[in-house]
Amino acid sequence: MTYCVAAKLKAGLVFLSDSRTNAGLDQISTFRKMLVYERPGDRFMCLLSAGNLSISQSVREILQVEKLPDHEGGDPITIWNARSMFDAVRVLGSAVRHVYERDGESLKRAGVDFNVSMIFGGQIACEGMRLFQVYSAGNFIEATPDTPFFQIGESKYGKPVLDRVITPDTPLDEAAKCVLVSMDSTLKSNLSVGLPLDLAVYEADRLQTERITCIDEHNPYFRMLHDTWGQKLREVFDSIEDPTWDGTPTEVPLMAGSERAQPLRKITNEREKLI
């Protein structure tokens, strides 16, 4: 399993992925799930992948050479000459379908689902930043101000903090901190997600980035974040009143005085036991 997350903000883009591909009592393997495509001054693109590893590897390889016809009569479209991120993600979708057409039937005969999902985002010169989530059929959706982040893989543990923090106006470094907290929550609750992590932070309109890092268990910032997040959660939890059951006056009673609050209860008497 895996967990990948990306956020699109007014200030830029943030991408984060784990690297665990198999988890068991005696076997753990890793594989990098982030790939950055960059031509400084012209385009920056980042791809995150989840699902069947053999499928995602094949898609990544084919993406390097995949072409789409240009309806305006120009050269075939690749990720390196695409004039927009929309065209670039169309090339990615075509690569996914290419792998399905080649391997889908044989995988099905072997009882293996064609399972791959991807996040693809970036910026090409002369247009704004864009972020997409790509599905197994090669179709995709785009991030909007109402949905400024995407997750793939084991997403449920890390989603609550993203829902509460990430908005289009979130500063770039704050968003990076938030996705790392989201990952830390996932690592805490799911063995199938694991270190090391790959983080890329892209500043809007720069068309390149130096803010790419690999985070392992010795990374001082991530260790600090892990310890502090756990401690602060405990402090907030301890600051909330415990529920009261004995009628003690409180501003926030647990036992509300309404008809709906009464439980359904069946009383069994001795006669009913004999029937």
Rank of each mutant, 00 (worst) to 15 (best):
E174V: 12
Y135D: 10
Q123V: 04
L131Q: 06
P145I: 02
R109H: 08
I28N: 15
D42T: 11
K273M: 12
N139L: 11
I212T: 12
A176V: 05
E259R: 08
A176D: 07
K188A: 10
R130I: 00
L195C: 04
L25S: 14
A88E: 04
T209R: 04
P196E: 01
G257M: 11
K33I: 06
E101P: 00
F15W: 06
I62F: 02
I275R: 07
C178R: 03
Y3H: 12
T268Q: 04
E235M: 11
L9F: 02
N139V: 10
C46L: 01
A204T: 15
P148L: 00
P160D: 12
N269H: 03
G93Q: 03
L191F: 12
Q27Y: 14
G158R: 01
S182G: 11
N190M: 11
L9S: 02
T228W: 09
S106A: 08
M85Q: 05
P160C: 10
R265T: 11
H98L: 11
D163T: 12
T213Y: 03
P168F: 07
V14R: 03
A7T: 13
N115S: 15
L187D: 03
S189R: 13
S19H: 01
G247E: 07
D198N: 15
G247Q: 08
E174F: 00
P263D: 12
D87A: 14
L197I: 09
S182I: 11
R109A: 04
T2S: 13
P76L: 06
F237V: 02
V112D: 01
S29T: 15
P243K: 01
M255D: 09
V89P: 00
V59W: 06
L199Y: 09
N139M: 10
A88P: 01
G24A: 15
D70T: 02
Y100Q: 12
L207R: 05
T228K: 12
D87I: 02
V14A: 00
K156W: 03
S17A: 15
A23T: 09
V89I: 03
R234P: 00
F86P: 00
C214H: 11
E142D: 02
G257L: 10
V36G: 02
